[in-house]
């Protein structure tokens, strides 16, 4: 029963939406389903938030390794939530000056804006910027001319790395006009447009068919392992 009901809902929802795509009368149903999902996911936020507090409080109280980080997580969670929900420090909207909560929490100068501008923004930008360091270390370790394919890959990498900067232009600027196709910046465009596009299309077609087949398996109840086990 615990598995049959979700399977029935999945199958019914999935097939109805597939058919609805072809029937004008029911074409709005997909949007309704998407809204239902958003509502469910929003309610699940509460579940997630509760779980976060529980797990980290437990870590702090048990003094597990890294419990200090849990303390910071909890403090950040509570501070941001209360400032955002309580609209602390927000000026009222000009149209409704007597209503304290009528202003926008994103307004420049508010505590929430401050948290966003000076904490959230630099932190996320830092995490993203770390990619540059990891790319360098991964390239050093992984790019090895082990066989013909790897050599081709290496050659392509060099062309793209050079062609995407002024170095590529400067290195092959001496090539005459009739050989302009061999200039690194032009070779980069050819590689991206022809070889990359062809390869990507093949992968995309495979993925699209994989998605269709997996979705069908889920709808038909053939694959129910995501619900916990392969057979009832």
């Amino acid at each position: 029963m615990k598995r049959t009901v979700p399977l029935l809902i999945t199958a019914l929802g999935g097939f109805v939406l597939i058919i609805a795509y072809f029937i004008p009368r029911t074409q709005g149903w997909g949007e309704i389903a998407a809204i239902w999902f958003d509502v469910l996911a929003s309610i699940a936020f509460v579940l997630g938030g509760g779980n976060l507090i529980k797990i980290h409080l437990k870590k702090v109280s048990d003094h597990k390794s890294g419990w200090g980080y849990s303390g910071i997580t909890l403090a950040a969670f509570i501070i941001t939530l209360s400032i955002g929900l309580g609209k602390i420090g927000v000026n009222p909207n000009i149209q409704f000056p007597t209503h304290e909560w009528s202003g926008s929490y994103r307004e420049i100068g508010t505590p929430f804006w401050w948290l966003y501008e000076y904490v959230f923004k630099p932190l996320t930008a830092t995490m993203f910027a770390m990619l540059a360091f990891y790319v360098a270390s991964a390239a050093f370790r992984a790019f090895r001319a082990k066989n013909i394919e790897a050599i081709l890959l290496l050659g392509t990498a060099f062309i793209i790395l050079l062609g995407r900067t002024f170095a590529g232009v400067a290195l092959t600027a001496w090539l005459p006009e009739w050989l302009s196709g061999l200039k690194l910046e032009n070779l980069t465009v050819i590689i991206m447009k022809v070889f990359n596009t062809a390869g990507n299309r093949a992968i995309m077609i495979g993925i699209a068919l994989g998605i269709a087949s997996t979705s069908l398996k889920v709808l038909l109840g053939v694959d129910r392992s995501y619900l916990g086990q392969s057979k009832e």
């Binding site: 469910l40 996911a41 699940a44 936020f45 579940l47 997630g48 779980n51 392992s225 995501y226 619900l227 916990g228």
Partner: peptide, 11 residues
């Protein structure tokens, strides 16, 4: 994601 957490627990 919270919903992934609940589904993963079931799994």
């Amino acid at each position: 994601r919270s919903l992934v957490m609940t589904t993963a627990r079931e799994t």
